[in-house]
């Protein structure tokens, strides 16, 4: 992969830091009155989801990370892996482990399309679309007054 210098760090750029793929969130140029310029960079570690803040000398570079967000249809789970298929007509399939689907596991529905993030070809994370239509199959009886109306009007 190509190397990216601090002045190319844009929001959304994927780079490798300490071996983990990270997505740049913010990049701020900071320079003392005289002397070395720095870039204060906020990035999300795509493996752990944690936000890192690191400072680099301006002009330093990081290796780009081979990360791609692809649309894939959810097929099925075998208990260990969750299987997705590309929607581009290639029928290429990818298996995601429990960690990768942790955020969407309650929202997985067969044949719906999800965004699967691949890192070096392996599924790293799965994101749900903004809307998922699910059918209510079971619900507790509601309590009286538990409705959308009846709130106190605040002025």
């Amino acid at each position: 992969m190509a190397n990216y210098s601090t002045n190319e760090f844009r929001s959304g750029l994927k780079v490798l830091l300490d071996g983990d793929p990270c997505s740049i969130l913010e990049n701020e140029f900071v320079k003392p009155g005289k002397g070395q310029a720095f870039n204060r960079v906020k990035m999300r570690n795509l493996k752990t989801g944690r936000v890192w803040e690191r400072t680099f000398k301006s002009g330093e570079s990081l290796e780009g990370a081979d990360v791609m967000d692809l649309d894939m249809e959810y097929l099925y789970t075998d208990g260990e892996f969750w299987h997705f298929m590309m929607t581009d007509g290639s029928f290429e399939q990818h298996a995601a482990d429990a960690k990768a689907v942790a955020d969407v596991i309650d929202w997985l529905k067969e044949q719906d399309v999800y965004t699967v993030t691949l890192f070096n070809g392996a599924a790293l994370a799965v994101a749900a679309p903004n809307f998922v239509e699910l059918e209510v199959t079971e619900t507790d009886p509601g309590l009286k007054g538990d409705t959308a109306q009846g709130g106190t009007v605040m002025c």
């Binding site: 900071v30 320079k31 003392p32 002397g35 070395q36 720095f38 204060r40 890192w52 803040e53 690191r54 400072t55 680099f56 000398k57």
Partner: peptide
């Protein structure tokens, strides 16, 4: 520098480190 800014020094001279701490931590 490491503690306050997550900066990983790489054979930097004292001035670079002072400038880092000045601009990132003290300023």
């Amino acid at each position: 520098a490491k503690r306050h800014t997550g900066y990983v020094a790489d054979g930097d001279d004292v001035d670079t480190l002072l400038e880092l701490l000045m601009s990132q931590v003290i300023e």
